[in-house]
Computed example of a mutant assay.
Amino acid sequence: MPRQARTRQLLDMAWALISEEGTDQLTLGRLAEAAGVTKPVAYDHFGTRNGLLAALYEDYDVRQTAIFDTAVDAAKATMHEKARVVAASYVDCVLTQGQEISAVVAALGGSPELQAVKRSYQHAFIEKCQRIFAPFAGTAGVSNAGMWAVLGAADTLSQAAADGDISRSQASDELMQTLLAVVKRSA
């Protein structure tokens, strides 16, 4: 099997294992066993368990970014519509992956290397949103602090929706209002 196809197979199997058993049970040995490959194959693709977790986070982020970018590009060029689409896309991406991404994010916080991977994607999201909302903000643009607030709200509201504490629409609506408030304050 070509390397790229094998990596995809291993990532898909890792997501399935997380769904069934959680991240605590996810090891490269367990992944190899479930995927029907030898341990050296799994180690060759990811190096370490942390490498696997980082690859899972990246896999999620690549898919989330593609969905997010497509939706934002298709949205009308108004502040309200861009905020609605950003909020809905963020929540939907988390809900699509379900509890599995929450488990990976929790595991990512466990080491400095994995925290660095997560932070790089957080910074990319903040910069993207600052570009999206620049036309609606003042000359200084949307503040970093405001975007960190939005990101915190996005993560918390999405998790609450994934946990069933609030609905998808409640999470999206609250996130949209938070985003609008931050952008309006910058104007």
Rank of each mutant, 00 (worst) to 15 (best):
Y43H: 15
V41M: 11
A66Y: 10
M79I: 10
A35V: 00
R49E: 05
K82N: 03
N50A: 08
T27H: 10
G29M: 10
L53V: 15
E81D: 14
A54G: 10
D59R: 05
T70S: 15
V86K: 03
K39G: 10
V62R: 15
H80K: 14
H80M: 08
V37M: 11
V72Y: 07
D73V: 04
R63D: 07
Y57Q: 09
A77H: 14
T78C: 08
G29W: 02
Q64W: 06
F46N: 01
E33G: 08
A35K: 12
A71V: 08
Y57V: 04
T78W: 02
A32L: 12
A75N: 10
Y43F: 14
A34V: 10
V85Y: 00
G51H: 06
V86S: 01
L28Q: 03
A32P: 07
A77K: 15
Y57L: 05
T70C: 04
E58W: 01
H80G: 03
T48Q: 13
F46D: 01
A77V: 07
A34Y: 02
H80I: 11
A77D: 14
R63P: 02
A77T: 06
T48A: 13
A34T: 13
A55T: 04
A66G: 02
M79A: 12
A42N: 09
T38A: 13
I67E: 09
T38V: 11
R84Y: 07
G29H: 12
G47F: 11
Q64D: 07
D61T: 09
A74D: 13
A42S: 14
Y57W: 11
V41R: 02
T70G: 07
T65M: 10
D61N: 07
V85F: 08
G47S: 15
M79N: 06
A74F: 05
V37C: 14
Y60G: 00
R30E: 15
T78P: 07
T70Y: 06
M79V: 06
D73I: 09
L56K: 05
D59I: 03
A83Q: 09
R84W: 01
L31A: 07
E33T: 13
A35Q: 05
F68R: 06
A42H: 00
T27M: 09
A34R: 12
V37H: 03
E33V: 13
T70H: 10
A83K: 03
L52P: 01
V37Q: 02
L56Q: 03
A66V: 10
V72S: 05
A35H: 12
G36Q: 09
A32F: 05
L53S: 00
M79Q: 11
T78H: 10
Q64R: 15
D69M: 04
D73A: 15
T48P: 02
L56I: 06
Q64E: 15
D44E: 14
L53F: 07
I67Q: 15
P40T: 08
T70V: 05
Y57K: 01
V86F: 05
R63W: 11
R49C: 02
D73R: 14
V86H: 01
D44I: 00
D69T: 13
G29Y: 13
Q64V: 04
A75H: 04
V85S: 04
Y60M: 09
T48S: 15
L56R: 02
A75C: 03
G51D: 01
T48R: 13
Y43D: 11
